[in-house]
Amino acid sequence: MSHSDQNLNLTLRVWRQDGPSDRGRFVDYKVNGISTHMSFLEMLDVLNEQLVAAGEEPVAFDHDCREGICGTCGVMINGQAHGPDNETTTCQLHMRRFKSGQTIVIEPWRANPFPVIKDLAVDRTAFDRIIESGGFVSVNTGQAQDGNCLPIPRQDQESSLDAAACIGCGACVAACKNASAMLFTSAKVSHLAQLPQGDPERSQRVVNMVAQMDEEGFGGCSNTYECEAACPAGVSVEHIARLNREYIKASFCSTAVPATKSK
């Protein structure tokens, strides 16, 4: 257990892009005296303070909670979504994972449905549209019966929560060679498919959500499972298998047909 605080000198190779229509380029920056106790985003804060002091525009990156739950942060760090640690978001990654003198390549999530807004910040509203297409239970406020009317086996509830734990960060898309959003989409399908509340709409839900996912321009799943390894919430590819089952069942054994909205 190391408690010692060391300082790192690093070269950051950062993707800079002024706006969606800019072509973008890599720029190298040096940051010195980075404490190993800093989080990765705190290290970027230091870089930005340095840039502002020099009168340059700071590097734009999305972040909010900085404790791994909101899903706002996320960049590719040396070719890995959210960096080298498993089940860790960029904001939870600490600099003790790096060595002095290292060059760190920092890139935004790249996928056509996630256009770059600026530098490392991308637009992930495609995810919202996927949820909008069916990731809900149609129950109005006030219509609910008593919470204990529907017993749910504990294993089902736990497994459903495993899927519902998705933070919507987009690392799965970023890490997938096909820029596929299957892990994200399956997490919601699987969450609701395992609960009785989700049952009445299960066929229409999966059919719609898959159609919307495709409409957004994400690639297909070729089962390389890089998404699972990159997922900070530990969402398993078993949920993708469940989506596949649900989708096949819905397509062949129900009357559901897809309804999509264009972007």
Binding site: V137, V139, Q143, G147, L150, L161, H191, Q197
Partner: peptide, 8 residues
């Protein structure tokens, strides 16, 4: 309400 929405 939350249970009905599928909150696990």
């Amino acid at each position: 309400q939350c249970v009905a929405q599928g909150v696990p």
